[in-house]
């Protein structure tokens, strides 16, 4: 059991800056994210795209923003628990017991939900029959490519993941690449390469088709695809891979007994506490009149939520307002040397 002043659910920009705000007021926190990297949407959806509306930063990419936010909290040495999802919140003696899907447990007076629109999950095939094989022969990500050696693999999708894996696996497997239209959204060089491999009959390229059914008797045998005009074809397959990007699922957050408004959590704008004492929600996941789903709003929300945590974490102390420019306590916490 890890004891801490606050657990932050979500390592997106909002969770990261909130950690900074906790750090400068002298609180400790642990940060959990189910992705394998820090940065939330900025790193997962648009690492290379420039952002133009971060105050005082005229331009920076999603990745640069993330790296700077990580740099800004480095001195606090907070722990990140990646590849782990916060699954369960339980109240025990006025403390929250937080459990993750990997079995970690935290005890804390404060939980800060900075979960964006929930956790990212791969979009799956719409066909019910594919569920039976999910994780076995119907896959949405690749851990070990050696399992495909000398097998028939049908890949669906038109982005970089689909193209890159089609190219890579075509070296050792029989590949069919299926996409719903003729244009691909992957990098031009990969598109070109796939077209060449299709012309030389290394890859069987099928455009304007989508999945209709997967078939098998215990183990997967084939996949049926359909065109919009109703024509269908059956392709032998040992594995079916789908790369349709990520969708966001509220996931376990919906089961914590919090008031929900569609997929968001209503909060008060004084300290961003939810209907449950000691549970705060900030960033894209919270809602209140006038809410803007912007990074800058998340920063402000995190600053107030951090102050909100103080009274539960240090019930016998009084929070004192201080500037980072002048407070020697804050400078100590940040590990910076005083110049004057």
């Amino acid at each position: 059991m890890i004891k801490t002043d606050a657990v932050i659910v979500g390592a997106g920009p909002t969770g990261l800056f909130c950690a900074h705000q906790l750090g400068i007021i002298g609180l400790k926190c642990e940060i959990v994210d189910n992705l394998d990297k820090i940065g939330g949407q900025c790193i997962e959806l648009y690492p290379d795209k420039p952002i133009y509306d971060i105050p005082a930063v005229p331009e920076c990419t999603g990745e640069e923003l993330t790296n700077n936010l990580i740099e800004q909290i480095k001195s606090f040495k907070f722990n990140f628990h990646l590849n782990d999802r916060v699954q369960e919140l339980k109240n025990e003696n006025d403390k929250w017991i937080v459990k993750t899907s990997n079995g970690k447990e935290f005890e804390t007076p404060n939980v800060i939900i900075a979960g964006g629109v929930g956790s990212f999950e791969p979009r799956k095939f719409p066909t019910k029959s594919a569920e039976k094989y999910d994780g076995k022969s119907v896959l949405y990500s690749i851990r070990d490519k050696s399992i495909f050696k000398d097998k028939s693999v049908v890949i669906f999708g038109g982005g970089d993941s689909a193209l890159d894996w089609a190219i890579e696996l075509s070296k050792t497997s029989k590949i069919t690449l299926v996409h719903r239209r003729d244009e691909f959204r992957g990098a031009p060089a990969s598109v070109q390469k796939v077209k060449e491999l299709s012309e030389s009959k290394v890859i069987n390229l099928m455009t304007r088709y989508s999945i209709k059914d997967v078939k098998g008797n215990g183990s997967l045998e084939s996949v049926e695809v359909k065109s919009e005009t109703g024509e269908s074809k059956v392709i032998n397959a040992d594995y079916v891979l789908g790369f349709f990007g990520l969708i966001m699922q509220l996931g376990p957050i919906a089961e914590w007994g919090l008031n929900l408004d569609k997929k968001t959590i209503p909060v008060n704008t004084e300290n961003f506490e939810t209907n449950k004492k000691g549970i705060f929600a900030i960033g894209d996941i919270c809602t209140y009149p006038g809410k803007l789903k912007l990074i800058l709003s998340g920063f402000h929300e995190g600053a107030l939520a951090a102050r909100g945590c103080f009274k539960y974490a240090r019930p016998n102390e009084k929070y004192r307002f201080e500037f980072t420019t002048s407070s020697s306590t804050i400078k100590d916490r940040l590990g910076v040397k005083e110049n004057d």
Partner: peptide, 13 residues
């Protein structure tokens, strides 16, 4: 828009 539609549930023309 089409790139995003590739990632939708059952996109059609």
């Amino acid at each position: 828009e089409d790139d995003m539609l590739d990632q939708a549930y059952e996109p059609k023309s």
